[in-house]
Design a protein around this nucleic acid. Structure first.
Lengths: 243, 243
DNA sequence: CCGAGGCTTCGGCCCCGGGCGAAGCGCCGG
DNA sequence: CCGGCGCTTCGCCCGGGGCCGAAGCCTCGG
């Protein structure tokens, strides 16, 4: 006989995201970076004591992975699944509450990071372009890249070999998957390939990070823009026009 | 200046799912059916008064759509996005808490309904088969069906025309989309086509609904099985082997 | 027109859990 | 070896909200 008042796993997980302070921490961690407990306390707007409790709960619940280093404790999202769940819920929330439409600035709608890959109009346009040119081909649960696609992307500095280091690629040749973009309502590219694309283009200066727009910016560390060299490179290498 | 203690949209939406009684109601509504307030109260294990409050909150938050009919008020999930968010969060929860692995019975792992489409090993096998045969072709954000695919599915009684009645099809010829299966960890078919497939096969007796396994069964109304005729039909029409 | 039944609203109870300050623990630097 | 700093634990307060019973509203059926 199970306790009928026991919170199901769904309720328990949702409860971990249901607190404003915890939600602010999770939003900050959507940048993909690992942040210290102190940084997260400041972001969430609570004292270190309160933040410590929140972080312990989320780590215990499997949402966060913790890495101790010296007297700092670095926290990051535990897995891509966690990031996907947060993104899905966030998108649902944005759709449900269009009260004040889009409070994050037009630039963030143009390009931003989602977890560790590109989102916004740029991410969606990239996804559409890769599919339209036949550079991506369906694989179970996502996409594989064709030889032509691999060559094109490698020419932009993307480490295809790194993108293939995942159990999903080993099992099903699935190098990328879709992630629903909550500002564009169309998919952008996630998974190993999405991660490597963002890493490569940030690394070669095609994309640059933008500063947060204020205290407690929910998109802090996720704001990016295409540089002039990036616009030229994307046009010449992939035929991708940017705004 | 915005109130820093205000619950962000993410936290507010998560909070709506974070209560055990509400989570049980949402799980029951994942069958895709519309249920009355009284039924949901019994499922959630609370009195009508309590349930009424919960339902009002969820409807106000955009999670539920309400339809008054006589002295009954029917509640259903407001959109496919809501169902997807619940499914994602539920899958995350199942992955996070593998304490007692799979408490829902082996039959539910073989075949079940997810929202209004097929899930479990059957749903995943169908998805893989349609893709492998080239009967589905990528469309922005999901899949379109090829002429051969349409013919094959129409032969099994699927109303392709109904599946095309969606803004996503009108805009991008996207007749179906992926939905991550939380027991198989591979995608099954959702969207208009997924809905019509489930409807058709249940209608012609290829699939039948199974009774709930007890009071408060979280998969109640979602348990299904392939009938002998269904197994034969799936093999002959689609070359799909079932267990 | 009246009683029954489904549902909501109201009022009150109670507990969960988020907030803080203070104290304790561990790692680093001097 | 000691002081500083990051982080956690402890003890306490307090408010939100989940729960129920009773009462009220509305619809249906006779």
């Amino acid at each position: 006989m199970t306790d009928p008042t026991a919170p199901g796993p769904l309720a328990a997980t949702a409860a971990l995201m249901a607190d404003p302070a915890r939600a602010r921490m999770l939003a900050a961690l959507m940048s993909g970076e690992a942040l210290t407990a102190g940084e997260l306390a400041r972001i969430a707007g609570v004292t270190a004591a309160t933040a410590s409790g929140h972080l312990a709960r989320m780590a215990d619940g499997g949402l966060l992975a913790v890495h101790a280093q010296g007297r700092h404790r670095y926290h990051r999202l535990a897995s891509e699944e966690v990031a996907a769940a947060i993104e899905t819920l966030g998108g649902l929330a944005a759709r449900i509450a269009p009260a004040r439409a889009w409070t994050h600035g037009e630039a963030a709608r143009e390009a931003r990071l989602c977890w560790n890959h590109l989102a916004g109009r740029l991410g969606v346009a990239l996804h559409a372009r890769l599919v339209a040119e036949g550079w991506l081909t369906p694989a179970p649960g996502g996409w594989d890249a064709t030889a032509e696609g691999r060559a094109r992307l490698a020419a932009t500095g993307v480490a295809i070999g790194e993108a293939e280091r995942s159990p999903r690629f080993a099992a099903h040749r699935c190098i990328a998957r879709d992630c629903m973009d909550w500002s564009e309502r169309r998919p952008h590219l996630a998974g190993g390939l999405g991660r490597e694309i963002a890493r490569a283009w940030l690394g070669r200066g095609w994309l640059r990070r933008l500063p947060a727009v204020g205290e407690g910016d929910l998109l802090a560390r996720r704001r990016i823009a295409v540089t002039p060299e990036g616009a030229r490179g994307l046009r010449e290498s992939l035929g991708l026009a940017t705004a």
